[in-house]
Amino acid sequence: MSKPFLLGVILILVAVGYQYREALQSLLPDSIKRDIKSNSPKSSNQQTPSTEAGPSIKNFPDPQYYNPPFDPEHPSEPIYSKSGTRLITLNELAAHGHNGTLRPLWLAVVGRVFDVEKGAEHYYGPSGGYNFFTGRDGSRGYITGEFNDEGLIDDIEGLSLAQIGELDGWVKFYDKDYTFVGKLIARYYNKDGSPTKEWYKYQRSLTDKDKLDAETAKLKKRYPGCNSHWTQDEGGKVFCSTGSGGTQRDWVGYPRRYFAPGSKNWRCACVRDDDLNSVHVKMYPLCDPVSVECKVHPDQIAKLRETGG
């Protein structure tokens, strides 16, 4: 059978489509049929065995993390990212912890592993008050104060922006005072050392917190706090000056109850003429609207806070 004839048959197969594929292929010699079959793409639902080492069930059975067994007596060769950063598995980190046998002591915060051996005597050693942080990423515990296995985890889902900022303070503390060892292959870093989706989510939260802090500072400058004074004879009062609320300015303002956007709680703020009609401010009861001070009674304040008025 000539090659032009075979080429014509193949072109017909392409044009006619899958419906007549089997019938047309029957016209071909067996050798050609075998070639077609061997070079056909595999079905999309066919599973391909993974060549990567599976996760160890020694200490951390979570299948989403690369975590091969680690023998402290015969440590495997260290692994590094392409940029040269040391990469550490959960089992290796555990071997350098409170239940492990290797020194120096290590701990992790948001996936960053630190050598805390220099603080072993007072803080991280067997008799130290922070020994339970070693050998794991207990990021959540730094914020919640839950120093048990359920609380000393790397999952920070649900923490407020303020708490995320506090956690970042711990990361900066360890970066400054202790030695950075490498990145933990777990929630925040992949096997190759690249950031995970959770790491990017954490970074977005830090960015959102910075924006919130900037907006809060802006509002504090626009609505500076009041001064307050209380005596047994005269009772209490709130008043405004050019330096009240710790903000030096060239205007005084009038005492008002200021409600931050989205909040039912309020604080006393000194408000300029331009902002007196803002939906975020309310007058103190029985206070002269153009006075720079207002008399207040504790019972009155308590009632206002209870009612949110």
Rank of each mutant, 00 (worst) to 15 (best):
G8L: 06
V9E: 12
L11R: 15
L24M: 07
N39R: 04
S40G: 04
K42H: 03
Q46C: 03
Q47T: 09
T48E: 04
E52A: 10
I57T: 15
N59V: 08
F60H: 15
P63E: 12
P63F: 09
P63W: 09
P68A: 05
E73D: 13
H74D: 15
P75A: 07
S76R: 13
I79C: 09
I79A: 13
Y80L: 10
P104T: 11
L107N: 01
V110Y: 04
G111P: 03
R112S: 13
V116I: 06
V116P: 07
E117K: 12
G119F: 10
Y124M: 06
N131G: 11
T134M: 06
G141S: 08
G145E: 10
F147M: 14
N148S: 15
D149Q: 10
E157A: 11
A162P: 00
G165E: 06
L167K: 00
G169C: 04
W170E: 09
Y174W: 13
Y174C: 05
Y178E: 12
G182W: 04
L184Y: 13
G193I: 07
S194Q: 12
K197Q: 14
E198P: 03
E198I: 05
K201D: 15
K201G: 14
Q203I: 12
D208V: 02
K209G: 12
L212V: 05
L212G: 03
Y223S: 04
Q232M: 03
E234F: 00
V238T: 01
V238L: 01
S241P: 01
T247L: 00
D250W: 01
V252I: 11
A260H: 07
P261W: 08
C270I: 02
D273H: 14
D275A: 09
L276T: 09
M283A: 15
S291Q: 09
C294I: 00
D299W: 10
A302G: 04
A302K: 07
